[in-house]
Design a binder for these strands. Structure first.
Lengths: 352, 352
DNA sequence: CTGAAAGCGCTTACAG
DNA sequence: CTGAAAGCGCTTACAG
């Protein structure tokens, strides 16, 4: 940004006299069409002419008017991103990955929060359509109809589902949650645990089901009891109390896999409150492997889903679909891996 | 969203035949100008006419074209938000507050991440200008020139600084960081601590200076040594190791105030690694009081800055400035308060 | 309360 | 490689 030039060249009343492409063209002694070509980096323009136009742009402090361009060109260089919530650090990382990829493509993200509410989701989708976004990255709110992506497609709006999927007939970028559950179960089983709980919370959606099913299947595959699924509160501060549920079972758990790291954090607190030492008296596995995992004590073993990477994948898929709307529906399900740290230990009385 | 209607009414080729205000007007048997008035909720239109137009909108699945409106009306209903980073949960909460207030005003946020880099900041500001945002909420990158807000003002773009300020001659929404430091120091002093450290990291900017100065002044006011300011790494995972710095001092610290909760989290881990019990062997105060504080064990005492509220304040200020550009520069510095939990205890050998 | 006309700042064919 | 003209979908005066 050439602060100096811009300041000097700023017109008297900045609100009224916007400098336009025509001004640039005149200053450079070319037609408006030519100036437009230069801006859009067309190879049709000669180097000397191009330079004259670029000089004029700088001299006048010209700012491209994306809105006007969009009206004619039907492209807004804008992507809508709808997330169900912003406070889980997981979504912040996802958003970071999306923003980075979209920015790199020279586009801009319009952000909205659906609060995991269908009515708000509908409202923000409409608003994004009004703003003429070129595409949508949507983490569908719980209970979203399976038809929504087709709907959006019928509107001519390229879209990709991220993290959660309501249909296989639309693009989707996520992680292999079921495999992640298997990794966690297998690991705990290898430490001799048989009474393994799964602590869940939040809205029910595809990622929820995939994890629950993944848990059940992995447990069943090892002939372990697969129904110790306990619900804890959504609020981090209230999870600790719910930890007692782990012990109010026919056969108390000796290990728990958590739906996400937020739960793991809360459960760790709850175990502490009971005087139990994580990794020795009780084993704990998180899910997402968000930054905090490294700073917990003992360090949290967690299934890594790399949300920033999922975000980048989703953005890339969307960009490709915008470029080529005819593509068949695609899926990008990235692998998870179990990041083993210190929060698990052998089951009681288990000898390796 | 009337899924059913829209589906049924969707034109054959959604990309080509956009339904326009003129179509709505024809369907409702009014002129385009009248239809426009209905959409903008003008009181000039009679109830019966209004109803006819609204029916036509639903029947045709009309979507307002904000881009076209903007071109004529010079308002985009769009606000740019630039943050230096997305991973600190603090910024996620701030963003949540901004998004909520902007959404409530019927506008939309365009998000960008400056990465605390001046060059990226300049690039995203330019991009937002190209997109014709009606205003900007900017958390200025470190080392931003004092002149930038004036610059932005000269471009005719309403803007408010949030969390960090580079000049008093532009709107600013933040928290009273110095008062927060004073609350923390006073509290620790009341517990008998005299060797109090301040653990900092990250880029240097106004919020940094305000906290450091607040710390120094509060310590000096109590005739305590005010220069035990230690730098720790930016990465959460690496902070624990740096905790040793607290003890490699002429007079080792017995308490530490942290620049933010991220540091507090890392330091808590580091203290744990040394076999120290927080709240008994060593006292720890965080800053920001972000959700995690409640789930740490022992629960973290932290200076609450309520980032979501700051975000809402910033959004409100911006909306007011957009409505009334002639306003003098304003400041909204919200009070902090010390949320006392469990991470502090009396100084060694201190009797109340 | 409604209609006809002009115009916002670009891009897009179409000639040259 | 460049220029003149039309048009994207709205809103804005201005008449009626």
């Amino acid at each position: 940004m050439q602060l100096r030039e811009d300041v000097i060249m700023a017109p008297e009343d900045p609100r009224r006299s916007r400098v336009t492409l025509l001004d640039v063209a005149r200053q450079a002694n070319v037609s408006r069409a030519t100036a437009s070509l230069v801006i859009r980096k067309s190879p049709l323009v000669g180097a000397e002419t191009r330079q004259r136009v670029e000089d004029a742009i700088v001299a006048l402090g010209y700012i491209y008017n994306m809105g006007a361009a969009r009206l004619r060109a039907e492209r807004s260089h804008t992507v809508g991103v709808i997330v169900p919530n912003l406070t889980n650090p997981f979504f912040a990382e996802l958003l970071g990955g999306i923003e980075h990829a979209i920015d790199t493509a020279g586009m801009v993200v319009i952000l909205a929060n659906s609060g995991d509410l269908l009515t708000r989701q509908a409202a923000v989708i409409r608003r994004m359509r009004e703003h003429g976004v070129d595409g949508l990255i949507l983490c569908p709110a719980a209970d979203t109809e399976e038809a929504l992506p087709a709907q959006i497609g019928a509107w001519g709006l390229p879209a990709v589902q991220v993290l959660r999927q309501v249909t296989a007939n639309a693009d989707y970028a996520g992680a292999d949650y079921a495999a992640g559950m298997r990794q966690a179960v297998d690991y705990l089983a290898s430490l001799g645990h048989t009474d393994i709980a799964f602590a869940v919370h939040g809205p029910v959606h595809s990622a929820y089901h995939e994890r629950v099913e993944g848990f059940r299947e992995a447990m069943t595959a090892r002939a372990l009891q697969e129904d110790m699924i306990i619900r804890v509160p959504d609020q981090l501060g209230q999870i600790a109390d719910a930890t007692r549920l782990l012990f109010e079972q026919p056969r108390p758990a000796t290990a728990v896999i958590c739906f996400n790291d937020v739960i793991a954090h809360g459960v760790a607190a709850g175990l502490y409150d009971r005087g139990l030492t994580v990794g020795r008296d009780f084993s704990l596995v998180g899910f997402d492997d968000v930054t905090d995992a490294e700073a917990m004590r003992p360090r949290l073993t967690s299934v890594s889903t790399a949300p920033a990477r999922i975000g980048e994948n989703a953005a890339r898929m969307l960009l490709e679909r915008i470029a080529n709307p005819g593509l068949p529906a695609r899926r990008n399900v990235s692998a998870t891996y179990l990041h083993i740290r210190q929060s698990c230990g052998p089951a009681p009385h288990f000898v390796t």
